[in-house]
């Protein structure tokens, strides 16, 4: 597997050098760190990590595709997470998901073409009293309605247009 020239290794150099005891610890913990640094798992990062840890690349790839926390494609600058847990569902969260999906023109798990927004769903955040809930860039908004979601999106989209 050839590397892309110019892949910036610096963000994960500390991971690739291992811990003080010479071990690497857990593969999954490493992947979580990579995901946090790059907002996805770049192919070259996975290849490097697999090599250093002595883990077959096929296993790393298998793990990377199994768990929801990992993404092989870059996520948008803004992440909108709609809770589809049971409590939020009986309070109508599906309509909110549909509204946001319509407005942004993407399906859940998708990212807008300009790389600005990723729409995700989560099966319960554990804040059920506030349902329906959406989380935008880590900020929770409760008692959502489709109209509130509209207003929120309008605000975010207009902010994006500001120079």
């Amino acid at each position: 597997m050839a590397f892309q020239p110019g892949f910036d290794v610096s963000k994960i150099e500390h991971l690739l050098n291992g811990r003080k005891d010479g071990e690497y610890g857990s593969l999954m913990t490493m992947l979580e760190e990579v995901q946090a640094q790059y907002r996805y798992l770049p192919k070259d990062a996975l290849i490097l990590i697999s090599q250093r840890m002595g883990v077959p690349l096929s296993q790393t790839y298998s793990v990377a595709t199994f768990y929801n926390a990992f993404s092989l494609k870059p996520k948008g600058r803004h992440i909108i997470n709609v809770c589809l847990g049971t409590a939020c569902i009986v309070r109508g969260s599906r309509k909110i998901l549909e509204r946001i999906s319509d407005r942004l023109g993407i399906e859940p798990s998708g990212t807008t073409e300009d790389g600005e927004f990723t729409l995700e769903t989560v099966n319960c955040l554990g804040a059920c009293a506030l349902g329906p809930i959406i989380v935008v860039d880590g900020v929770y908004s409760g008692q959502m309605k489709a109209s509130k979601a509209d207003a929120l999106l309008r605000e975010m989209l207009s902010e994006g247009e500001k120079p």
């Binding site: 597997m1 192919k43 996975l46 077959p56 690349l57 096929s58 296993q59 790393t60 790839y61 298998s62 595709t65 199994f66």
Partner: peptide
């Protein structure tokens, strides 16, 4: 050789080489 693995989860599960490109293992 560990050239292929089970990729994705559930109904979308498949057998693929890494990155679905091919494997030099």
């Amino acid at each position: 050789a560990n050239a292929i693995s089970l990729v994705n989860r559930g109904f979308a599960k498949e057998v693929k080489p890494p990155f679905e490109i091919g494997s030099n293992a």
